[in-house]
C-alpha cells in the first residue's frame, strides 16, 4: 500500500501546464490513486478520487449536496450545522434522507460539477494524495464515464443552441418577446422569476438549489426561443480599443451599467457588432433581430422582470404572490 502511494507521488509531476483536467484525471485514475485533483481556473473545482474511481466532484459553479438538500427543505440548515464531518451516514441514520436518496443526490451533484470542472480552460492542476470527499458517500464512477458524460453534456448544449454566450453571462429575460405564446418549463419559469440582470446561470442554480448544468441548458433553450437577451458586453469589441489587458478587463466590467448610453450613442456600430457574434439562425426559432433589438426595452441592472411586483427580488417567491400571478394569467385566457 505504502509502496504504491510512493510510486504515485513519483509520477505526479506530469500535471504541468497544457494538460487538460480530463487528461490528468485519466492518468490519475489509471494509477488507481486516492486523493484530490484541484483544478485552478475559471470556474475550476476539485475532483476526488478513491482507488482510481471518482467519488465526488465540487465546483464553485455548481451547488453541492448540502445546498441541494437544504434548498428543497429536505434537511434543515440547523441540522447540517450539527452533523459531523463525512455526513452521508449520519444523515441516513438520523432519518433525514434514505440511503437511495443520498446516493442519487451525491451522484447528481458529482456529474453536475464535473461539467464545469472538466470544461475549465487553461487550468492549473494540483494533486494532493489521500484526501477524500467530505460527504463520505459510496457512489463512484470511472474517469471514462465522467469524461464521456461531459462530452455528451457539451454536445447537448450545442444541439439546443449553438452559441455559448449566455452560459456564464448574467441572465436578462426579454421584456417583450413579441411572441403570441410562450411555453416555459418549470425550471425556466424559476430562472426568469429570479433573474435580476446580475445573476449568472450558475448563481441562479445556487440560489434555487438545482443543477447548474440544467439551468445553463435551460438558459440556452430560452435564448434559442428569443426569451433571454444575448449579453451586451461583447468581449471581441474590447481588445482593439484598449490593448492593455488590465484596462480591457475593467472596461468590460463597466459596460453593463452604461449599456443604454452606449447603444444610443452608436446604434449602427453596436448593431454590426451584434450581428457578428450572433449564432446562425436555427430554422423555426425566433431571431434576435425581429423585432429590432434597439426597440426592445432593456432591463436595468439589478432589476428583475417582475420588479413591478413587490417582494419578488432576493426572497424566495411567496405562495400568495405566485397564486395572484397565476390567477391573473388565468383570467387572461
Amino acid at each position: 500500500m505504502n509502496a504504491t502511494a510512493k510510486a504515485t507521488r513519483q509520477q505526479q509531476p506530469k500535471l504541468g501546464r497544457g494538460v487538460t483536467p480530463a487528461k490528468a484525471l485519466g492518468q490519475l485514475a489509471a494509477l488507481g490513486v486516492t486523493g484530490a485533483l484541484t483544478v485552478v481556473g475559471e470556474p475550476g473545482g476539485v475532483i476526488f478520487l478513491r482507488d482510481g474511481l471518482v467519488n465526488g466532484v465540487e465546483s464553485p459553479a455548481a451547488p453541492s449536496v448540502d445546498r441541494l438538500l437544504t434548498a428543497c427543505g429536505k434537511v434543515e440548515e440547523r441540522v447540517w450545522e450539527t452533523i459531523p464531518s463525512r455526513p452521508a451516514r449520519a444523515l441516513v441514520e438520523g432519518g433525514h434522507v434514505s440511503a437511495a436518496e443520498i446516493e442519487l443526490c451525491a451522484i447528481g451533484a458529482l456529474y453536475d460539477a464535473a461539467y464545469f470542472v472538466l470544461s475549465t480552460e487553461r487550468a492549473e492542476l494540483r494533486f494532493a494524495p489521500d484526501i477524500e470527499h467530505w460527504l463520505g458517500a459510496d457512489c463512484t464512477v470511472t474517469a471514462d464515464q465522467l469524461c464521456d458524460h461531459v462530452v455528451r453534456q457539451r454536445r447537448i448544449l450545442n444541439e439546443v443552441h449553438p452559441s455559448d454566450v449566455t452560459d456564464t453571462a448574467p441572465v436578462r429575460p426579454v421584456l417583450r418577446p413579441g411572441l403570441d405564446r410562450v411555453l416555459v418549463s418549470g425550471l425556466q419559469w424559476e430562472i426568469v422569476l429570479h433573474a435580476d440582470g446580475n445573476r449568472t446561470p450558475q448563481e441562479l442554480a445556487g440560489l434555487l438549489g438545482c443543477s447548474a448544468y440544467a439551468v445553463t441548458l435551460d438558459v440556452r433553450r430560452l435564448a434559442a426561443a428569443g426569451l433571454v437577451e444575448p449579453p451586451v458586453a461583447t468581449e471581441p469589441e474590447e481588445p482593439p480599443a484598449t490593448p492593455e489587458p488590465r484596462v480591457a478587463a475593467s472596461g468590460s466590467a463597466a459596460v453593463p451599467a452604461s449599456v443604454p448610453a452606449a447603444a444610443a450613442a452608436s446604434p449602427p456600430a453596436n448593431g454590426a457588432e451584434r450581428r457578428e457574434i450572433l449564432p446562425r439562425r436555427v430554422p423555426g426559432t425566433f431571431t434576435f433581430e425581429d423585432p429590432p433589438t434597439g426597440t426592445r426595452r432593456h432591463l436595468p441592472a439589478g432589476v428583475s422582470a417582475l420588479a413591478v411586483l413587490p417582494g419578488a427580488i432576493d426572497k424566495p417567491p411567496d405562495d400568495s404572490l405566485l397564486k395572484r400571478i397565476r390567477t391573473a394569467l388565468q383570467s387572461l385566457r
Partner: peptide, 8 residues
C-alpha cells in the same frame, strides 16, 4: 420525483 432537484 425526488425532494431535492433531480431529473431522473
Amino acid at each position: 420525483r425526488t425532494g431535492f432537484d433531480s431529473r431522473l
